[in-house]
Design a protein around this nucleic acid. Structure first.
Lengths: 107, 107
DNA sequence: TTCAATGTACGACATTCATCGAAAGGAGGC
DNA sequence: GCCTCCTTTCGATGAATGTCGTACATTGAA
């Protein structure tokens, strides 16, 4: 069968995104690094981020980002790919992610 | 003597502001309400914010905002006045506070 | 089939956090 | 001096958070 994989990943709808949740998701050094890396280089596999935490910790951070609507994840073979939800965030909270990432660059 | 008041309030310098700290300070409903109220109506006394938490909790939130560099507080007689550090934040993290408050308005 | 690679799930742990109530303290008015 | 108003400090408490190690599941290759 082709449908016996892991449970499908849940992503909140655009209209359900909460500003407080998004800010909370971004208010962590490791997660901000993840988001910044995604912004610079597009979709990536989980293990390819320039952070120094245990794999299980990384999984935790991805879940926080995913449930806040900041990233989208999809399964493909051995990898789980992660991408920024730029457009959704821009539609819901115009300029917020953009300006935060710009400040992060110059910080 | 005129210098026997409470310890002077400490405010971080503009160049010492941390983006993660600012985001963390804003990632709370009560504090976001405080910041939004300040943005709409300028400087205010502590007890005049439209929030429903205990006075001691409010003091806690003001300290978080102050130490992150989001607000500035000054003593005057019986009151402690609180104001947004709009310009400092704009200089350090251009557009960040602005876009967050704009999104908060329409949320 | 066996193995290595990738990433998750679970449980544990120490820390931080938001919240409150009670007590205290400075400022101004009586 | 005394009292009231505004705000802080302290201590406590329950919840959330970031971290890890271990075990497990899935995939693709040897």
């Amino acid at each position: 069968m082709s449908s016996t994989r892991r449970p499908a990943l849940i992503h909140p709808l655009v209209q359900d995104l909460s500003l407080v949740d998004v800010l909370h998701a971004l208010a962590d050094p490791t997660r901000l690094t993840i988001v910044n890396t995604l912004h610079e280089s597009g979709e990536r596999a989980c293990g390819t981020f320039p952070v120094t935490v245990a794999p299980s910790t990384l999984t935790h951070h991805f879940r926080v980002l995913r449930e806040a609507g900041v990233v989208r994840q999809r399964e493909e073979g051995k990898h789980r790919w992660t991408a920024l939800r730029d457009e959704d965030l821009q539609a819901r909270f115009p300029g917020v992610l953009e300006t935060i990432l710009a400040s992060e660059q110059t910080a």
